[in-house]
Design a protein around this nucleic acid. Structure first.
Lengths: 72, 72
DNA sequence: GATGCTATATATAAATT
DNA sequence: TAATTTATATATAGCAT
């Protein structure tokens, strides 16, 4: 995004990869939340980091969102 | 984002809401794909528009992603 | 109603602290 | 290592078609 266009390929440096994961996860969840509100839509986002940790966002209580929340 | 900062609240005009849904859905899926590649993460995104239509993106074959793909 | 265009808001990579 | 800053890439709202 800055100081040299980012190429979309796996980030090999572990620290950089974790930092990027954290930042982009926040961005993705924010976008998901905005889409839900603006467009009156139901949204679910589920991520597994490459360390196996689960992160999710949802604005609804049924369907897929319920599947995810039932699972942990 | 432009010509007046967007307030994050339900878009009442049906046409505008559908246009925004389509555009932001594309953006969200793109961000999800980039996060998966850059950070070697598994990602699943599921959306229901307010017309009840399902849209999803995933880069993985197991866990929640399999739940979603098994369901339709 | 869908699509393409731009001006501008937003996200974020790298640097810095 | 984690938070903050900043320069720049990216996303997108409103228009035009």
């Amino acid at each position: 995004m800055v100081r040299g266009k980012t190429v979309i390929e796996r980030i090999e440096n572990t620290t950089s990869r974790q930092v990027t994961f954290s930042k982009r996860k926040s961005g993705l969840f924010k976008k998901a939340r905005e889409l839900g509100v603006l467009c009156d839509a139901q949204v679910a986002v589920v991520l597994f980091s490459n360390t196996g940790r689960l992160y999710d966002y949802s604005n609804c209580n049924s369907g897929y969102a319920r599947l995810t929340s039932d699972s942990y």
